[in-house]
Nucleic acid binder design. Structure first.
Length: 563
RNA sequence: GGCCCAGUAGCUCAGUUGGAUAGAGCAACGGCCUUCUAAGCCGUAGGUCGCAGGUUCGAAUCCUGCCUGGGUCGCCA
């Protein structure tokens, strides 16, 4: 979906002007017919000498115009209207790049736009209000959240924030696996811990849950209820423990995630799908569509018709469902609720599961790309330079809660958001804990702190902040660099949304902070000799502060006033 | 063995979907605090983009083959 003129900031409009001017120069120079002109690619060169913007149009036209790129560039630029696109100078460089040097005064127009938008600066309508549902974490309610879940939570929540800023209508959802064997295991484990707490001989089941959290639940139940449950018949007792265990585990999950800055719009129970009959309904639907058959006493889904390696069992020969069956019903439920697209964030150990879920989406009659599954890769935790192996079953894993206690919320969120989700990552606890320049999260926060300090000082000196002040004193190279960075923000949000790539936001924040630190060291905001400049720079500083805050909010990192 | 992810500076990672001399952070080296917080800035050094072919004006990026690490291949969830 295209951005409207009205939602573009001045930098984006400048880019559009320049693009239009380039396209029209191409046809004026007779290099290509209007319908053959390629999309104009405008990039911001890394090197200053390569101008403010550059295009590779001349190279793209070699095939159509049948000339060498440098000659094309000459002919093209001869037709450009400098005044119309605020061009000061054009260079032709390298293999045929056209470099544009602009009159950067227009960049100042970004400042009032940022101030006016405030917390909404960066918000666009590229999502067009599309309803997207993001399912993430969805850890079984049988233990604490570990590192992988933490990464999934950080990535998922940041992505949701990004999608929201990019104009999507986002619903965050957690799928509770409260119907399978693992919940039986939980009930048995709670029972064992409860009986142990009362001093009875009781062994944890072999595949039970050894975590401290389950132990605490058993002990708590013993404290609160004494031996009230010990005398009950086994079946009755387990039913109680199943329910109580689930409730306590869920309360803990919610509390831990909330402390991590992650909340959900919906906690969706698998059991509800059994109770509503939707699982049976979904199975019937697949049968009607002819995607189901019986063999070897089981019921199979013809997922191989949609690109899966082989068909999958839906109903086992003991007549119970596999995990897949309710999951298909769950996704049908999502689609029935009217979402335009679904995003699932899964751990790496589930990646083999993607083709069958995609097959199910298609069997239900939806396009393949209705569901996008983002894989969050493994996390290696390093402590004192050594790998900490995680194992949920034995309870040796480092939990999200421990991580937050040791490392802190901000560093944890930033570290996970910092890396692209589908790559393996090392989480260096010593680095994340260190309160030093080795720690990347402080770099960004420190920039914000410096801004706050400037405003405090200005206040103490009685300098009034006036957003309506004349901004023309903002004209140095460092200031223009800063303004360019600020102007990029909406585009960064939109790109991060399109690519489902939250780590682009941390990259951007680091660049913005770097641009500010560089400015801060080179020039003073408050200049006692020059009140006009001081006041103008305070307004610039406010725009930087707003942009930083908006970016940090997206990542779930706090913007401290002092450090 | 099939499929998925990864392999880029000493370390941890980016690389705007094919563009210019491949970039950051940390570590190393040299500078900058009587001036808004030095958790900062400025500079130097650091590379066979796993390997070999191919596609083209142009490849870290796309294609093929191979090597290495991890994951996954159940009528578990």
């Amino acid at each position: 979906m295209r951005r409207t003129q009205a939602t573009m900031n001045s930098m984006e409009q400048m880019k559009e002007n320049l693009k239009a001017e380039i396209a029209s120069a191409v046809t004026k120079a007779g290099l290509a017919a209007p319908e053959e002109v390629p999309d104009v690619m405008l990039e911001q060169p890394k090197e200053k000498e390569h101008g403010d913007f550059a295009t590779n149009m001349a190279m793209q036209l070699t095939k159509i115009a049948k000339k060498n790129p440098r000659q094309i560039a000459e002919e093209l630029t001869a037709e450009m209207d400098y005044a119309k696109a605020s061009i000061e100078k054009i260079d032709i460089a390298g293999p045929g790049f056209i470099n544009f040097f602009l009159d950067n005064a227009y960049l100042r127009e970004i400042i009032p736009a940022v101030l006016e938008a405030g917390a909404d600066y960066g918000r666009t309508d590229v999502g067009g209000g599309e309803r997207v549902q993001v399912e993430f974490v969805s850890a079984n309610p049988t233990g604490d959240l570990h590192l992988g879940h933490a990464r999934g939570a950080a990535v998922g929540d940041s992505l949701c924030n990004i999608l929201d800023m990019a104009g999507y209508n986002v619903t965050r959802e957690y799928y509770i696996n409260d119907a399978g064997n693992q919940v039986e295991g939980l009930a048995l484990s709670v029972e064992a811990r409860y009986l142990q707490a009362l001093g009875h001989e009781a062994a944890l089941p072999e595949d039970g849950y050894h975590g401290d959290d389950v132990k605490e639940i058993g002990e708590r139940l013993a404290e609160e209820n004494g031996d009230r449950y010990a005398g009950l018949p086994e079946e009755e007792r387990l039913a109680i423990f199943r329910e109580l265990g689930l409730k306590k585990e869920l309360d803990k999950l919610k509390a831990d995630l909330s402390a991590f800055g992650v909340t959900f719009d919906e906690w969706f129970s698998e059991t509800a799908l059994y109770e509503s009959g939707e699982i049976e309904e979904t199975l019937m639907l697949l049968k009607e569509k002819g995607y189901v058959y019986e063999a070897d006493g089981a019921v199979w889904f013809k997922s191989s018709e949609f690109g899966d390696d082989k068909d999958r069992v839906l109903v086992k020969n003991d007549q119970t469902y596999t995990y897949l069956m309710p999951d298909i019903a769950y996704h049908k439920n999502k689609l029935d609720r009217g979402f335009d697209s679904l995003i699932n964030i899964w751990g790496a150990d589930h990646h083999g599961y993607i083709p069958r879920m995609q097959a199910a989406i298609q069997a239900l009659g939806y396009a393949h790309d209705t569901l996008d599954v983002e894989i969050v890769q493994m996390v290696n935790l390093l402590r004192s330079g050594e790998k900490v192996k995680m194992s949920k079953r034995t309870g040796n894993a480092v939990t999200l809660r421990e991580l937050m206690e040791d490392v802190g919320l901000d560093a944890t969120r930033y570290f996970f958001a910092m890396r692209s989700a589908d790559t393996h990552m090392d989480f260096d606890m010593d680095l994340a804990v260190s309160e030093s320049n080795e720690n990347p999260v402080y770099y960004v926060q420190y920039a914000h702190t410096r801004l706050c300090s400037i405003f405090r000082q200005a206040d103490e000196r009685g300098i009034t902040y006036d957003p309506a002040v004349d901004l023309s004193p903002v004209a140095s190279e460092k200031e223009y660099d800063l303004l360019k960075k600020i102007g990029e923000f909406p585009e960064v949000v939109a790109d991060a949304a399109r690519l489902h790539a939250p780590h682009r936001m941390t990259n951007y924040l680091h660049e913005l902070a770097a641009s500010f630190h560089s400015f801060y060291n080179a020039e003073r905001v408050m200049d006692q000799e020059n009140e006009a400049k001081t006041k103008a720079r305070l307004v610039l500083a406010k725009a930087v502060q707003i942009t930083l805050q908006n970016g940090m909010r997206i990542i779930g990192v706090s913007a401290p006033e002092r450090m």
